[in-house]
Amino acid sequence: MDNRLTLLLPYKAFNLPITIFILAGFMNAFPKEVEEAGIVDGCSVMGVFGRLIIPMLTPALATAFIINFLNNWNEFSFALVLISDSALKTLPLGLANFAGQYNRSYTLQMAGLTIVLVPTLLFYLSVQKYLTAGMTAGAVKG
């Protein structure tokens, strides 16, 4: 309780299935001829992986990163249950502090929501081209 690892481990555990699903779909559609061409050209197994597969895997990795980032950024329930130290609370928990039992400050809530939304929106706009490429990369077999 009340340390950074408390949230890190559940976040990883709950985001691992979608990450595996995205990367497995991409890797199943990856042509074996590219690997064979790398071996014929003299690359080792690690050389083929580092010089050929990883650069071609970039859209799928970016898609998994974007989805995981957005899921973790907006997560509320784990942080509410596992963190009680106010210095470690996440932004959604901080926004919940604006709503009390008997009063609500809607102007402060909307200002806080805007401040929280801006980094997410900028991040998404800067990497959205990778999201589309990564989601469609493993979809078609052919």
Rank of each mutant, 00 (worst) to 15 (best):
L7W: 12
L9P: 04
P10V: 04
Y11R: 02
K12Q: 05
F14C: 00
F14P: 01
N15E: 03
L16G: 00
P17Q: 08
P17A: 09
P17C: 08
P17F: 07
I18F: 03
F21T: 04
I22R: 01
I22Q: 00
I22H: 02
L23W: 02
M27G: 04
M27Q: 14
N28C: 07
A29F: 03
A29E: 09
F30E: 14
F30K: 08
P31W: 06
P31L: 10
E33G: 12
E33I: 02
E33S: 11
E35V: 08
E35F: 01
I39T: 15
I39L: 15
I39C: 06
V40T: 04
D41W: 04
G42F: 07
G42E: 13
G42V: 06
C43N: 13
V45C: 14
M46C: 10
M46K: 03
G50E: 00
R51Y: 06
R51H: 09
L52M: 14
I53C: 02
P55R: 14
P55N: 12
P55Q: 13
P55E: 08
M56H: 08
T58C: 00
T58S: 08
P59Q: 11
P59F: 12
P59N: 10
A60P: 05
A60L: 03
L61W: 04
L61I: 06
L61A: 02
A62D: 07
A62R: 12
T63V: 10
A64G: 12
F65A: 15
I66V: 13
N68P: 07
N68C: 15
L70Y: 11
L70N: 11
L70G: 08
N71H: 11
N71K: 12
N74P: 01
E75D: 11
E75Q: 10
F76W: 06
F78S: 09
F78N: 04
A79D: 09
A79N: 07
L80W: 08
V81F: 10
L82R: 02
I83Y: 00
I83S: 00
S84Y: 03
S84I: 07
S84A: 04
D85M: 02
S86T: 14
L91N: 05
L91P: 07
L93V: 07
L95H: 05
N97S: 10
F98E: 05
A99L: 10
A99P: 02
G100H: 07
Q101V: 12
Q101H: 09
Q101P: 11
Y102W: 00
Y102H: 04
Y102C: 01
R104G: 04
S105D: 07
Y106M: 13
T107G: 13
L108H: 00
L108V: 01
Q109H: 11
Q109A: 06
A111W: 11
A111M: 12
A111Y: 07
G112D: 00
L113V: 05
L113P: 04
T114W: 07
L117C: 15
V118W: 14
V118G: 15
P119Q: 11
T120I: 09
L121F: 15
L121M: 15
L122T: 13
L122Q: 14
F123T: 05
Y124T: 15
L125G: 15
V127N: 08
V127L: 10
Q128K: 15
K129L: 15
Y130Q: 03
L131Q: 05
L131S: 04
A133P: 01
A133V: 03
